[in-house]
Simulated assay, not measured.
Amino acid sequence: MGGAGALVAAGAAGYAGRDEIRRWWWRTSGRERPRTDGVLDHPGAEWVAASSANWRRAQRPDDYTVDRVVIHVVQGGYGDALRVFRDPLHEAAAHYVVRKDGHIAQTVRELDVAFHSGNRRFNERSIGIEHEGYVDRPGDFTDAMYVSSARLTARICARYRIPVDRAHIVAHSEVPGTDHTDPGPHWDWGRYLRLVREAPVS
């Protein structure tokens, strides 16, 4: 895990400088993609909008490179995650929440910056996926959850040309500066990456 963490942290300065130029060009160009409330980035997901206090409007990947997927565990239920993401005082939300039965809610558009990792640069460059359950309960990570989440991640990786490896699909605990431990020791990374590689992306 230490090696993966080092890879995660590498290149931050280059990323920041490159995207600073792109971001300011996009903001001053007068160009913005049309938006429709409730439009989904992942087919079959349920739209449950997070409070606008828990994310920031952006035009990714035009203003920020998207090159990471961050895996989270709620430390609670699916409904708990959706409830706090709708709370403007919570100050955090992930783009997606995956339920134990594989059902997915999208709460923030991928083009926007969700406040999910506790690190501004990582928020700007990543898609955050929450999973129902607790880090100390391996039974919470069901077959349906793994398969559904892997399909979601596979499509995200295909969309942004993100390599399917542990340097680019990372644990919340590996984000620089975080004090979180999720998804914890019971998350099966080998199985998950295999499922991501095998998942259809069309």
Rank of each mutant, 00 (worst) to 15 (best):
H90P: 06
Y15F: 14
K100M: 13
H72I: 06
V97Y: 02
D19N: 11
P88A: 04
R60P: 11
Q75K: 12
D63K: 09
D19Y: 15
D19S: 11
Q75P: 00
N54F: 02
V97L: 02
R23A: 13
I104M: 02
A105D: 00
K100L: 10
L111F: 11
G79A: 14
G79C: 04
S52L: 14
N54W: 04
W55Q: 04
T28S: 15
V97H: 01
S29I: 00
D67N: 13
A105R: 00
K100R: 13
F85W: 09
T28C: 11
H90Y: 10
S29E: 14
V39T: 15
G17S: 10
T28H: 12
W47T: 01
I21E: 10
V84Y: 07
T28D: 10
P61M: 08
A49L: 15
R57K: 13
D62G: 06
R27P: 02
R109F: 09
V69M: 06
D87Q: 12
Q75I: 13
A93I: 00
D80K: 04
Q106W: 05
Y64C: 00
L89R: 10
G17M: 06
L89G: 07
V66I: 11
A81D: 10
A53P: 01
R18K: 15
R99P: 06
E110N: 07
R60G: 01
N54A: 01
D63A: 04
R57W: 04
Y78R: 05
D63M: 02
I71W: 01
R83H: 12
H116E: 07
A93G: 03
L111S: 12
T36K: 13
D67G: 00
Q106K: 10
G14Q: 10
D37F: 14
G44I: 03
Y78D: 02
R35K: 06
R120G: 11
R18H: 13
V69I: 14
A45G: 02
G79Q: 15
V97C: 03
T107L: 10
V69T: 07
G76V: 05
D62N: 14
V74A: 05
W26V: 14
R99L: 05
V74L: 05
Y78F: 13
A114S: 08
G30C: 00
K100V: 08
P34M: 06
S51F: 06
G102I: 03
V108W: 02
